[in-house]
Amino acid sequence: MRHRTFLEYQRYRHLKLATALTLAAIVVYAWFSSPVGRYGGTLTGYALGTIGALLIVWLMWLGIQKRRYRANANGLKGWVSAHIYLGTSLIVITTLHTGFQVGWNVHTLAYVLMLVVIFSGFFGVYVYLRLPRLMTENMGEDTLDSVILKIADVDQDIRRVAMAMPDDVTRMAEASIQRTRIGGGVLAQFRDQPAACPTRQAVGFLEEAGKTLKGDDQQRNHELYSLMLRKKKLVARARTDIRFKAALTLWLYIHVPISFALLAALSAHIISVFFYW
């Protein structure tokens, strides 16, 4: 059976639900024109606003509660599907709620924050659909742990071979073994090729040295060069994997905090409207 993504959950059940909700909102908006114009303060406006606010709160509540579904992958998939489709329908529902009236105020702030949350969510969907395949292509049968073990093995060989070589080569090999950083801070995790990677420098050095050496020296140099090249590739794969993993979660650092900012702005929006009724 073909693997079904969270978007296709239960034959697009939530897509259908969200589409129905969106169409209903459009029909209501088009049908009931208020004599005082179309905006959030009419009966239609209140209705659309209430639906929008409840959806926002419900989707956030599900987000907080989703850990409960961990045991059941299907349940999690259903939640993600509902979250995406109903979240998307919010764009239409809340835009109609505004009556296309925007300004520099808390009301538009809530609307804009909501759009930021939704579109960061879209990016999340994109990376969840695209990156896993790229990650598999990058790692093949390996996992990050197995690549790390392989690097450690290569390091051992490098050390062994380098031991019989001139001191500067040994130092370079040792630097590669001890100072090749994989991952790191926020920015480093997004870098495939750090500016000063001792392994890369060692590969370059050995390649140059190989051109002038002769006999046994040249053979040893070549052996070390091969090992270093292999390490370089392994390190690149590990770094790419880390970059993908970071990309998979980075959008959440916008999606989640802005969701809470949205919840605050939504409260301010609703309270202010009735405070100054």
């Binding site: 990050l144 790390i148 690097i151 450690a152 790191g184 801070g185 993993k245 980075l250 989640v256 969701s259």
Partner: peptide
Amino acid sequence: DLADVRANLRTGLSGTWLSKRALS
């Protein structure tokens, strides 16, 4: 050797200063 590699390994944004909770 493995310890050497692991010492230079940091993966995942949760290990960095970024914190969803604090930002929220």
